[in-house]
Amino acid sequence: MKGVSKIIGWIGAVILMMFSSCVDDVDFDQANDIVLDPAIELSLVYFKFSAQDFAEAEGEPSYKDSTDADLFSQDFFEYNLKAAEFYIEHTNTINKPFFAEVLFFDANDIEIYSVDVSIPASTNGEPVIIPTLVYFPEDQIGILKNTSKITAEIALIDESPPPLDENSEGSIEFNSSAIFYMEFK
């Protein structure tokens, strides 16, 4: 029986040895340092007007529309949005220039940011493409997080005759997308 306990002791020692040397030079606290920084790309607002849409109104007609936009004040963005880049693209095939404006409002309906774009007239229906990049770096991202309403406005600048009528051709298009740079710690 003495031999038995000796052998069992020996085996126990081997097991202990194996397990006590099990992990060298490992630091599990590093897991706290992890940072995830995905970039999410999303299509945003779009609209399109034909030349006739502007023919119906007198003077210098404009169109304006707004959407609620509490997106950025929700926790997902509020805590983790680090920077954002908006891409706006106007495509004009009407032989008149336009003026476009995108406005950001906070919860008190106070304008906190605006993007102005001048779009030259098209000649012979050739598309005029005006890309606009709006970047919100880390120190300005608060503007976006305070936004609760976004308004888009497009106005015809009728500099010279003839005015647009129901036979006028072409369209003005608004496309937009954004890349949201996130940071999860």
Partner: peptide
């Protein structure tokens, strides 16, 4: 994305719950 529909040519504030 969200298509802005615009009620009509107007200066009035159109606020929609598109989002």
């Amino acid at each position: 994305g969200i298509e802005f529909l615009f009620g009509q040519a107007t200066d009035d504030e159109f606020l929609n719950n598109y989002w």
